[in-house]
């Protein structure tokens, strides 16, 4: 099935008569990508479900103001990333969780989740990713799972390409070390 171009979505959205159709096309094109992006960050399905809906409400409200100097999908990714990081920060504050316990809390959610279907190695990989700080995790996920270019990630996060390369390099090293550590078994 041919994917509709972002330019077509934006054109239709600018017309009051075809606005709903344009939004429906946008949802069809991006809802799954955005859901998985959020889900990998917040782990819990219900949290991801709430966030993905909030993200698209924001998209609906602000799409008219969207400037075509950036790409539509990087703009939506930016909203989703900011919403997820804000959610995680609020969660930490609400639960008064120290930084070093955040990853273990998310790991517990991962283990207890009924919507996880990976094997032991996959579980260990997820635990390794969860040891990373939130922003490093965000960069790692976008590179490892979404195959985005550094320029694209830079547009989403507002971080320089050099800083992103360094961040991803450190993240990979940490994960490799975690995976090689035989003391951590499940």
């Amino acid at each position: 099935m041919k994917q509709v171009e972002d330019s077509e979505i934006l054109e239709k959205f600018s017309n009051e008569k075809t606005r709903n159709e344009a939004f429906n096309l946008l949802l069809t094109k991006y809802q799954q990508k955005i859901y998985w992006h959020i889900r990998r960050l917040v782990i819990d399905h219900d949290d991801a479900d709430d966030l993905v809906q909030d993200v698209f409400i924001k998209v609906w409200k602000n799409l008219e103001k969207f400037r075509s100097d950036s790409q539509l999908y990087t703009w939506i990714y930016r909203i989703a990333s900011n919403e997820s990081i804000t959610f995680l920060n609020k969660k930490k504050q609400r639960n008064n969780t120290p930084l070093d316990e955040v990853s273990s809390e998310l790991s517990e959610t991962l283990v207890e989740s009924s919507y996880f279907n990976g094997d032991t190695i996959q579980l260990k990989l997820q635990q390794a990713i969860l040891t990373l700080p939130d922003k490093q995790r965000l960069v790692f996920n976008m590179k490892y799972y979404d195959d985005l270019k550094y320029e694209e990630i830079s547009e989403i996060t507002g971080t320089s390409v050099g800083a992103l390369k360094a961040s991803f390099h450190i993240a990979v090293k940490k994960i490799e070390a975690f995976m090689l550590n035989d003391d951590i078994t499940f």
């Binding site: 939004f23 998985w36 782990i43 993905v52 996880f116 190695i121 990989l125 990979v172």
Partner: peptide
């Protein structure tokens, strides 16, 4: 740099409730 990580198949290990994506557009709308 990371041969162990490289050897792990890249796939989504999370799942969603049945028909979740079928209803997601309608819920958002």
């Amino acid at each position: 740099e990371a041969p162990t990580l490289s050897g792990i198949p890249r796939r989504d290990v999370f799942s969603v409730p049945h028909n979740y994506f079928e209803n997601l557009s309608a819920n958002i709308e």
